[in-house]
Design a protein around this nucleic acid. Structure first.
Lengths: 223, 223, 223, 223
DNA sequence: AATGAATGAGCCTTCATTCAT
DNA sequence: GATGAATGAAGGCTCATTCAT
């Protein structure tokens, strides 16, 4: 076992590996994969430039490790179902979904990292995106689709369901992707604490209003 | 020794300047400001590496010039009101707004460039963003706010209006910002021709359903 | 034409390109491809580190250029036939071949570079070796084979001819490949001027003595 | 805090030291001193990266140790006299010398390592070369000189003897030093088993033919 | 008006080596 | 007796930029 990054457990590594993951999470989340430099990460981690190579192999492998680790942390801190039972009313489940999603993106601390990284990944995809979609994004999309499906009239076709799900998600991600513009347009907007809850409430209400009044599919006339 | 990029008219410039603008528009729109290289732009423009610095000063100034020029072209090709009279019903104006926005982002040709550049700018802001917000984005936001305002119950507060506008816009931009993910989740999705119109129709309907059923503000009980 | 190394003529390049070729020839010849550093080459050429990239693309392309250029120079300075007519007696042609080969390897100045580079290439082959064998080494081997063929008894089989050619060449190359050892064993040995001629004379005589007395192939008994 | 590599006996060392020597012999013999990496050696030895420095001090000291150890093994496996009595006819002793030399270079297994290392050392000399020449190469050269001396006419001068010896040795080493080129020129050539014996036979015959017909030194006419 | 040539800063990676355990 | 962790120097390469023409 010559290189430590061959060790999947990596439990017995020193603190440098953790520092590196931490620092890389911050830097990648701030400026994206390309713009992030190994030097900046190592400096923030208080480690040598060669530490990345030693612990992870190369920059991209470090990135993958950050993604996977942040995924675990984020879902542990803000679970998708937000503690709601599966048979809770769909309105409540939608509200919980939106709120947890916003918190994953905007809350401070390492738990918020994953949301930011995912958002970055959508913009500037890397080789890690495929894995992320498979393991992380698609399951979440299906969960949302189930909620939406319980809100629109029965019989609504699959394509509409997908588009409605995306209409919900888009409202959440918008504030992250377009934050620079939003901040300039409305400098008083904030994304934490009570303000974040209000935002979640708005998105939920907007979506509920739309979904509840979604036109029922044309039925074949019964004899 | 006057540098030509100090000359606002730039009337006596040869065709190289135009080629550069054209090529830069393409490259910036495709890969963003940072990932774009001066060499790639010059090569596509059939010009020398030094041409960018000669004509525009530096990479960022070229970017600003591209932004401004593309702005003119785009608004000429896809006017915000889409040719509708100001007194058209708000439903029609919303539909036109959404459709024109999507086309600005997804249609081919130089006219579509601006939408892509704006979208890129939201993600990866540069010094040009302030100017863009002031001249371009804010007016468009106000126009949308007017449409939304005509759809929700009278007396709806300003903050709600803003949030509703953003809920509309977010659904449009989502397909651009998250295209890599969307393409992986639903590979059969397309963003041109009839499919784009269907998408516009969905976003319009979803938004209309939400706005039309927006809860009226609680009124103080009249005696 | 963005990169100058796309220009096969490269005639209008500044002096830096020439300096680079010169310096690279020296360094590659001294320490081989791997051990040579771009920085060392540029320093010796009085150029910037990026000059190699600009003029040749990368280190390996520079190496190829050095190889090709030195090939022309060396064969011009010490032609394979050494000015002898094709119908000269094979003894004289062998003597000329050996002498020119030794001079290509050991003489000073840029003309000697090619021999050294070829010798290095044999030891530490790069991607350029295939081209070199095709264009340079095989023709020379065939020329030697023709000389050898005229010296051994007629009817000598092809395999023996090849081995005899290699026995001749090996004696020449030995002094280059094993120079560090030879110099330690016999410190008074020199490889220039009259001493080089004596060495050529020895190799020629040794080879002639062997070839002239090469056993004739067994003939089928005539009836 | 005595470093173990200061301990000449190294009796109390575990098996790691042996593994290291074994692995280093393989790697150095394959790619040479410079191109060999400590990591590759340690990995092949199943040891830690630091093992080389711990057991031998540094990379070069390991190399020296490999050289010395392989020397013992090689000479035991392929003795210079090949088991021939000192009073055997010189033709037989030359044949044995050539054959054993070729086998030391080309045969598989650890016994062949030394030949390869010596050949590498000639090309890319290290600090270990002086020791090697003194202890290993010079004695072998003298033995060959004795054989050659018994084949050429009596009274042949010292310089000619030396050159003839080198003509013999060069033919052997050639196939190692120029293997990349030889393999490209004649892809069907092989260097093991019967083919190796044939090659030894060729070199012996070529050399014998040359030496037996070496011109006698001009004698002063006797009255 | 424009360009070929050249530059220097910075990037990711690799390597032999050392330190603390 | 041995190792995992960490380091600093160096390597090849890329990029936006500048200079002389």
């Amino acid at each position: 076992m010559v290189e430590p990054f061959n060790n999947p457990a990596a439990a017995e590594s020193g603190p440098t590996r953790e520092h590196l993951l931490e620092a890389a999470g911050e830097v990648f989340g701030e400026v994206g994969f390309r713009a992030a430099t190994v030097r900046a990460i190592c400096q923030r981690a208080g480690a040598n430039v060669a530490a990345v190579n030693y612990h992870f192999g190369d920059k991209e492998a470090l990135y993958s490790a950050v993604l996977q680790q942040s995924c675990r942390v984020a879902l542990a801190a803000y679970p998708v179902d937000a503690g709601l039972p599966a048979d809770a009313p769909p309105e409540a489940r939608l509200r919980a979904f939106v709120r947890a999603f916003l918190q994953r993106i905007f809350s401070d601390g390492p738990a918020a990292r994953h949301g930011r990284l995912m958002a970055q990944e959508m913009i500037e995809p890397t080789a890690a995106l495929d894995h992320l979609v498979r393991e992380d994004i698609r399951p979440m999309a299906q969960r949302l689709a189930a909620i939406v499906s319980a809100l629109v009239p029965p019989g609504t076709d699959e394509a509409s369901l997908r588009r409605c799900s995306m209409s919900v998600v888009s409202q959440i991600l918008f504030y992250h992707h377009c934050r620079p513009v939003v901040s300039r347009l409305f400098p008083d907007l904030e994304f934490h604490g009570e303000k974040l809850d209000q935002l979640a409430e708005h998105i939920t209400r907007f979506s509920l209003a739309a979904l509840r009044h979604w036109p029922a599919p044309a039925e074949p006339p019964a004899a």
